[in-house]
Design a protein around this nucleic acid. Structure first.
Length: 116
DNA sequence: CTTTTGACTACGG
DNA sequence: TCCGTAGCCAAAA
């Protein structure tokens, strides 16, 4: 079974403000652990709209886009705008990585991307 | 059909 | 921590 675009975008849309998820994590949540690249390609191709694409980062919390590029700076700007510190192009995942299981544990099943 | 190309990852040195 | 390398996989050339 293939990794479906709609599903991936839906998952990205549920990442709470102030948290981030990795490409591999999103792929895994979509049921396709080895498709990190596919996720990146979708975000690059499938465009944006109100999608919180800036909350998706590479493994280890690194920003995948070129720091000097317009998109890269925009991502950093948005993240800082919602309270996520970005130092040397990276984010501390231990503090800001999205953890769906924990969210559900704290807020109960059926939680909908809220958070403060 | 084969090769190249990424918003990826894990692992070594 | 910072590269290079080697897997990875679907889409585009």
């Amino acid at each position: 079974m293939a990794l479906r675009a709609a599903e991936v975008l839906a998952i990205v849309a549920t990442i709470p403000s102030g948290r981030v998820a990795t490409y591999g994590q999103v792929a895994a949540l979509a049921g396709q652990p080895r498709h990190g690249r596919h996720v990146g390609r979708l975000l690059a191709t499938a465009p944006a709209g109100d999608l919180p694409w800036h909350r998706v980062v590479a493994a280890g919390g690194r920003i995948a886009l070129p720091p000097q590029g317009a998109a890269g700076r925009e991502q950093v700007r948005r993240l800082r705008g919602e309270g996520v510190p970005v130092q040397r192009g990276r984010i501390d995942l231990a503090l800001h990585q999205w953890q769906p299981a924990l969210d559900e544990l704290l807020w109960g099943p059926g939680f909908a991307a809220r958070d403060s």
